Simulated assay, not measured.
Amino acid sequence: MPPSDASIHLVRTLYSEHQPWLLDMLRRKLGNVENAADLAQDTFARILSSNEAGPLREPRAYLTTVASRIAAQYFRRLALERTYLDAIAHLPEATSPSPETRMLVLEALTAVSRVLGGLKPQVREIFLMAQLDGLTYPQIAAQLGLSLNVVQKAMGKAYLHCYHAVYGE
Rank of each mutant, 00 (worst) to 15 (best):
P2K: 06
P3E: 12
S4D: 07
D5P: 13
H9D: 10
L10M: 14
L10T: 07
V11Q: 08
V11T: 09
T13Q: 11
L14A: 01
Y15C: 12
Y15S: 06
S16L: 11
Q19C: 13
P20K: 04
L22N: 06
L22R: 11
L23T: 08
L26F: 10
R27A: 13
R27N: 01
R27C: 03
R28L: 13
K29S: 09
L30F: 11
L30I: 06
L30N: 04
N32Y: 15
N32V: 12
V33L: 12
E34V: 14
A36S: 09
D38V: 11
A40R: 14
A40V: 03
D42P: 07
F44R: 01
A45M: 08
S49Y: 11
S50C: 12
E52N: 03
G54W: 09
P55K: 15
P55M: 10
R57D: 02
E58P: 14
P59H: 02
L63K: 05
L63N: 02
V66Q: 09
A67Q: 00
A67S: 12
R69S: 05
R69P: 05
Q73P: 03
F75Q: 07
F75I: 01
R77A: 02
L78R: 07
A79K: 15
T83N: 08
T83R: 09
Y84W: 10
L85Y: 06
A89Y: 09
L91S: 04
P92K: 01
E93Y: 10
T101E: 01
R102Q: 04
M103P: 03
V105H: 01
E107T: 03
T110H: 03
T110Q: 01
V112Y: 10
L116F: 09
G118K: 10
Q122F: 07
Q122T: 09
R124P: 01
E125V: 10
E125S: 13
F127P: 00
L128P: 10
L128T: 13
M129C: 08
A130D: 00
Q131G: 10
L132P: 11
L132D: 05
G134K: 11
G134N: 00
Q139H: 13
I140M: 14
Q143D: 07
G145V: 09
G145I: 14
S147P: 09
L148Q: 01
N149F: 13
Q152A: 10
K157R: 15
A158H: 14
Y159F: 02
Y159Q: 02
H161Q: 04
Y163R: 15
Y163P: 06
A165P: 15
A165L: 05
Y167E: 03
E169F: 14
